[in-house]
Amino acid sequence: MQKNAPVGVLDSGVGGLSVLKCLRAALPQEDFIYVGDTARTPYGPRSEAEVRRFVGEIIDYLAGRGVKLVVIACNTLTVLGVETLKGSHAFEIVGMSKGVQLVLSASKKKKIGVFATEFTINSGAHKAAILEADATAEVYPQACPKFVPLIEGEQFGSGAVKEAVAEYAVPLKADGIDTLILSCTHYPFIQKEIEREFGGEVTVIDPADATAQEAKAALAAQGLLRSEGAGCLEVCFTADVERGARIAGRVLPQDKCRFKEVKL
């Protein structure tokens, strides 16, 4: 592996751009190649076999681009087990942080809500990780299938988003949560709407910063951190590049990005 090689980042669509923003802030000297599979999003309702095939194709593409590390900027893919996605590739893979210590530190009542896709919720991974760290915690998972299509459809600030947030908040409010983790990388795009719905009594946590720090640590451990220069961003989508670029503009400087369509 070469220090000057790029870092690969992948997601089922545009959600991972929220993680790319944090990666760029943590590693400004690194080059990044982002692949969002906008042609086949959302992954949440799909079968495990289908999801594994899709992510394998993206990882193979990034391997062909000579990346030194891959960040799985998608909770749905992370719960599959990042090592099982690696195949024979030499580079390390970093998945999304479950944010366990973040939520336990923030939650005074240890009543924690989880917003995620159906696939992630059904895996039970986040609940298990939190309870393993603190058996006294109470964890309330909530699948939010309407969120990803609304975000991919650029329905930011719309009535439909507000209605969906209110719908999914009802059971968690009844459970009396004081902390909520956004366990889908799409959800930070509507974090303000979520925070407004729950009010100041609930702390809403995005684990993307923790993920970026884990990626930085992985590079440092292998002696692969670039020490100088200003990194560039290549942002790729499998369909709807113009839409992807508009959404990217909400979290990334467009003048620093090169947008392109890729076929897998």
Rank of each mutant, 00 (worst) to 15 (best):
H126F: 15
D11Y: 02
L62V: 10
K21A: 04
V241A: 11
F32W: 01
L20P: 01
P149A: 11
Y140N: 05
E214F: 06
Y34C: 07
G99N: 00
V70S: 02
Q254R: 15
L10I: 00
L219S: 06
K127W: 02
V262F: 10
Y43L: 10
S158E: 11
R243A: 13
M96P: 02
I58T: 10
A116G: 15
P45F: 15
K86S: 06
A5L: 08
Q213E: 14
I205R: 01
R250G: 06
C236A: 10
P145D: 03
A5Q: 10
R24Q: 14
D209G: 07
D206T: 02
A164L: 08
Q222L: 08
K162T: 08
C232L: 12
F32I: 06
I177L: 02
D206K: 03
P253N: 15
I247V: 15
L85G: 05
P171K: 14
K263W: 14
A217K: 15
L102D: 10
P6Y: 09
A25G: 10
C236E: 04
A133F: 08
L62P: 04
L85Q: 06
P253Y: 14
A26M: 09
V262K: 06
E132I: 03
I121Q: 02
C22P: 00
K86W: 06
L20S: 05
R53A: 12
K98P: 00
L27C: 09
Q254M: 14
R243W: 10
A90P: 00
C144H: 04
V67E: 02
M1Q: 00
H186I: 08
I181T: 13
C74L: 03
V165G: 04
D178V: 05
V79P: 01
Q213T: 09
T120Y: 07
A221C: 11
Q254P: 13
